[in-house]
Design a protein around this nucleic acid. Structure first.
Lengths: 221, 221
DNA sequence: GCCTACTTTCCGGTTTCCCGTAAAAATGAT
DNA sequence: ATCATTTTTACGGGAAACCGGAAAGTAGGC
């Protein structure tokens, strides 16, 4: 049973319609936070008052503004929240469409559901909440298909590091020195070349430019 | 005075909160469309019935699905709508943050307002609608600042063409042949090099990778 | 310790890119 | 048509990237 819900969402418009959707499910105890830190604070307070939340509905990405935040985004919030309240159910509501990212949420953060902001999102939101209320994990119907069609290559931290450097304007030949300084291994120029080659071969890419464009498109960097 | 409003927005959640916001402004005659073509149809119908819309609130980007659309997005919708109803007021409500894009909306499409989906977007939406109701163009307070800080370089079609080719994996040396075939001028390899150099110099970029990353970030390609 | 399998680095030759200069072509004014 | 200006292309030398193979280093099993 889900009685008390916390919405963590920076966009007021999104937050409002989530709220409205919950009301249609006869959930009346709804709080919302515009910042991750604020959300965590509310969770902590609720526990202290012996009136903890049953469900956290959160976005993944929060815009930065003048309010400096300790928590960098939804993922960090989930980790922190589960730390203080392990049994908290979590539903992610986000624009994110990259299945590797979504898959990681299920696997690593063990979220209870993911609903993508899209055409019929509020209807799906209801289904997801119902599903979670029945103590089951909700998988979006569109999701599995996407995961199937997804290219399976997993970018390592190293991959992301060197591609990011390229995107920042570093020349390949200058990257070893940079990596060496931060004690990232391997750091040899050849290793970088080999790695980039491997990735490009996987995706049938012919240039670094194409790789950078791809990574930007899919939010990998 | 604004009495009748059409919301063109594919995300149900966003659409709902816009609707709710309008209701709080005592606007009761609200229609909504999930697709651009549908939106245009409604505008046409309303004119026929001598009950045309006073305001169109639209998103910029609509997700593609099985429903093939003639109109590719918000900008196309605005153009088409103004064609059938020149006096239609238009308010764009979108995630878009690139000031060059937003600026183009005001200048080329002569929109009456732009509100960015962000923290206090519904409050801003109200202000924007009020402003437009008073026959004034609404400029978001955050916007002008952004435009000021924006780099002013204007990418030509040629620039975008060659950068797009790079992002697609074309090697620089193969681009002349491609341009020649499509009769795009200039097409010499030197011209391409010169152009890329010029752009990179403007932005203080050191590599094509960095340029591609930038153009992806700002939706230029 | 020794062997094996694997990863990382070093090295060279080739291709592509980079960049300045000069020639050629197009444009525009008179 | 002529000349001046600008744009485009051609060329060449040097730097960086690309690519394959060999050598050196590393880790784990026995």
């Amino acid at each position: 049973m889900i009685r008390k819900v916390l919405i963590a969402e920076d966009h007021e418009s999104a937050s409002i319609s989530v709220q409205k959707t919950l009301e249609e499910l006869n959930i009346t105890s709804i709080d919302y936070a515009y910042y991750c830190d604020e959300a965590l604070l509310r969770i902590r307070k609720a526990i202290q008052n012996n009136d903890s939340y049953d469900l956290l509905i959160t976005d993944l990405y929060f815009e930065e503004d003048h309010n400096r935040q300790a928590l960098s985004g939804g993922a960090a919030l989930i980790t922190a929240a589960r730390h203080v309240q392990p049994d908290l159910r979590v539903l992610v509501f986000s624009l994110e469409s990259q299945s590797t990212v979504i898959g990681a949420l299920y696997q690593e953060l063990e979220i209870d559901g993911f609903v993508r902001k899209a055409r019929h999102d509020t209807q799906e939101l209801k289904k997801a909440v119902d599903c979670i209320a029945a103590n089951r994990v909700y998988y979006s119907p569109g999701l599995s298909k996407e995961i199937r069609t997804e290219n399976t290559y997993n970018f390592t931290e190293f991959d992301i590091a060197i591609i990011s450097l390229l995107a920042k304007g570093y020349r390949q030949k200058d990257i070893p020195a940079y990596l060496l300084q931060r004690q990232i291994r391997p750091s040899g120029l050849s290793s970088i070349e080999k790695r980039l080659n491997l990735i490009k071969e996987k995706f049938n890419f012919s240039s670094n430019e194409q790789l950078v464009a791809f990574c930007k498109d899919y939010g990998i960097i």
